[in-house]
């Protein structure tokens, strides 16, 4: 399964998950047969999914035990509702007792599910606290972002809490989606139909250049798998550093510097200018070339 050259972007959450982990190693928790669907969508009399848009379970990755969640972006934009959020929270809770080598979150979500908005917002804040608890226990959490909905809203925050953020060029990461900004602030602020601009502001190459993503990979399930293995093994040999005052003061300085450096920037090109000799070539660069020019090892 993992040998097939399948696009991560085009695959369903289930295909991504199965293709990422070792063959026949996945055990699903709270599987579709249990029918834990959203009672709130049911009240609105609109379609339900038997897994409420997220698959959670245990697997091995190159033999290492992991816990893994995959959001289905095509089911209400992968948005987090009460059941959906509780499944991921439960998985993170299980990490505290099982102590896997890593927890992998295949994020594909616009954030809070508006049909159950209050439950979704509270669930994401619980998710945030759960991720921090898992990290405090010394277990690394990785976010893998390459789905059609990217990682936005609260899930954009959760993604940036993770110890590693793996993105494909097609993956997108941010807080407010371009459509939301355009609706409220106007098309001059952000033209959401300008796909090239959207990718230059939120896409994987921009996020990798700013340092918001730690890895950029090709849009292929095996590429995500191989980097996930490398990262899992990296944290086996080099334990997770705890978040302490010094590391956060350092981060504070870095973020202050970023704001000053790109004080007026509104387009990824302005950021690539600082990093690449030919910024206009960045969108067409292969991932390998991009990583080489950025001076990083994949």
């Amino acid at each position: 399964m993992s040998g097939l050259q399948i696009s991560f972007l085009e695959a369903s959450a289930r295909k991504r998950l199965i293709g990422l982990v070792d063959a026949n190693s996945f055990t699903e928790f709270c599987p579709p047969e249990m029918r834990k669907t959203s009672p709130h969508l049911a009240l609105l009399d609109i379609p339900l999914a038997l897994d409420d848009g997220v698959i959670v379970g245990a697997a091995t990755l190159a033999g290492h035990s992991i816990l893994i969640a995959a959001q289905e972006g095509r089911f209400y934009g992968g948005a987090v509702g009460e059941v959906h959020g509780a499944k991921i929270c439960g998985l993170l809770g299980k990490a505290l007792t099982d102590r896997p080598s890593a927890v992998l979150l295949l994020v594909d979500s616009g954030g809070v599910r508006l049909h159950e908005a209050n439950a979704g917002l509270i669930a994401i804040s619980e998710l945030v606290r759960s991720v921090l608890d898992v990290q405090a226990a010394g277990i690394p959490v990785f976010a893998l972002v390459g789905g059609s909905c990217g990682a936005f809203g609260g899930m954009g925050i959760v993604t940036r809490l993770c110890d590693e953020v793996v993105m494909s060029e097609q993956g997108r990461l941010g807080l407010s989606g371009p459509e939301v900004i355009e609706t409220v602030k106007g098309v001059e602020e952000f033209d959401s139909r300008d796909r090239a601009l959207v990718w230059r502001v939120t896409g994987g190459k921009l996020r990798r250049a700013v340092g918001e993503a730690t890895q950029l990979v090709d849009d292929l399930i095996p590429a995500f798998r191989s980097i996930a293995i490398k990262l899992t093994e990296k944290y086996q040999s080099q334990p997770l550093a705890s978040i302490d005052l010094d590391s956060l003061l350092e981060k504070q300085a870095e973020l202050v510097k970023r704001r000053a450096r790109f004080e007026r920037a509104r387009d990824g090109l302005e950021i690539w200018q600082e990093v690449f000799s030919e910024p206009s070539c960045v969108p067409d660069m292969t991932v390998a070339d991009f990583n080489r020019q950025l001076g990083v090892q994949a």
């Binding site: 925050i157 990461l173 941010g174 807080l175 602020e189 978040i243």
Partner: peptide, 26 residues
């Protein structure tokens, strides 16, 4: 709510929010 701006998104406002979360948790 969060500021709605292309500039803020470009710089990764979600990352700034994640930093707040980490500071509160510390």
């Amino acid at each position: 709510g969060q500021a709605l701006s292309r500039h803020e998104e470009l710089l990764g406002l979600n990352g700034y929010f994640a930093h707040i979360v980490k500071c509160v948790d510390l």
